[in-house]
Protein backbone atom coordinates (compact mmCIF):
# COMPACT_ATOMS: atom_id res chain seq x y z
CA UNK A 1 0.00 0.00 0.00
CA UNK A 2 1.50 3.28 -1.13
CA UNK A 3 1.90 6.05 1.44
CA UNK A 4 -0.81 8.67 1.02
CA UNK A 5 -0.34 12.31 1.90
CA UNK A 6 -4.07 12.83 2.37
CA UNK A 7 -6.11 15.97 2.89
CA UNK A 8 -4.78 19.46 3.53
CA UNK A 9 -6.86 22.45 4.58
CA UNK A 10 -5.62 25.84 3.44
CA UNK A 11 -7.50 29.16 3.69
CA UNK A 12 -10.72 27.32 4.45
CA UNK A 13 -10.46 25.06 1.39
CA UNK A 14 -9.87 21.32 1.41
CA UNK A 15 -7.22 19.84 -0.91
CA UNK A 16 -6.71 16.14 -1.56
CA UNK A 17 -2.98 16.04 -2.23
CA UNK A 18 -3.10 12.55 -3.71
CA UNK A 19 -5.67 13.57 -6.35
CA UNK A 20 -4.06 16.78 -7.59
CA UNK A 21 -1.81 17.11 -10.63
CA UNK A 22 1.59 18.79 -10.50
CA UNK A 23 0.34 22.11 -11.94
CA UNK A 24 -2.42 22.34 -9.31
CA UNK A 25 0.07 21.44 -6.59
CA UNK A 26 2.52 24.06 -7.84
CA UNK A 27 -0.20 26.75 -7.69
CA UNK A 28 -1.13 25.66 -4.17
CA UNK A 29 2.53 25.68 -3.06
CA UNK A 30 3.01 29.24 -4.38
CA UNK A 31 -0.04 30.41 -2.39
CA UNK A 32 1.14 28.56 0.71
CA UNK A 33 4.65 30.00 0.42
CA UNK A 34 3.24 33.53 0.18
CA UNK A 35 1.15 32.89 3.28
CA UNK A 36 4.15 31.43 5.14
CA UNK A 37 6.31 34.46 4.28
CA UNK A 38 3.53 36.76 5.52
CA UNK A 39 3.28 34.90 8.85
CA UNK A 40 7.06 34.81 9.16
CA UNK A 41 7.30 38.58 8.57
CA UNK A 42 4.62 39.23 11.19
CA UNK A 43 6.45 37.04 13.73
CA UNK A 44 9.74 38.81 12.90
CA UNK A 45 8.22 42.25 13.38
CA UNK A 46 6.69 41.17 16.69
CA UNK A 47 10.11 39.88 17.72
CA UNK A 48 11.91 43.11 16.87
CA UNK A 49 13.52 42.01 13.58
CA UNK A 50 12.68 44.64 11.02
CA UNK A 51 14.98 43.99 8.06
Amino acid sequence: MENELGILIFEGKMYNLDKMNSEELKELIIKMEKNYKKLEKEAEIRSGIYN
Binding site: Y15, D18, S22, L25, I29, M32, Y36, L39, E40
Partner: peptide, 22 residues
Amino acid sequence: LFKELKDASKDLAKAKMAYAKT
Protein backbone atom coordinates in the same frame (compact mmCIF):
# COMPACT_ATOMS: atom_id res chain seq x y z
CA LEU B 1 1.34 32.98 15.57
CA PHE B 2 4.15 30.51 16.21
CA LYS B 3 1.68 27.64 16.20
CA GLU B 4 0.29 28.90 12.89
CA LEU B 5 3.84 29.15 11.49
CA LYS B 6 4.65 25.61 12.60
CA ASP B 7 1.48 24.23 10.98
CA ALA B 8 2.10 26.23 7.80
CA SER B 9 5.64 24.84 7.56
CA LYS B 10 4.36 21.28 8.08
CA ASP B 11 1.63 21.68 5.44
CA LEU B 12 4.06 23.28 3.00
CA ALA B 13 6.45 20.36 3.38
CA LYS B 14 3.55 17.96 2.80
CA ALA B 15 2.45 19.80 -0.37
CA LYS B 16 6.03 19.80 -1.66
CA MET B 17 6.36 16.06 -1.04
CA ALA B 18 3.09 15.56 -2.94
CA TYR B 19 4.45 17.70 -5.78
CA ALA B 20 7.66 15.65 -6.07
CA LYS B 21 5.66 12.42 -6.02
CA THR B 22 3.07 13.56 -8.57
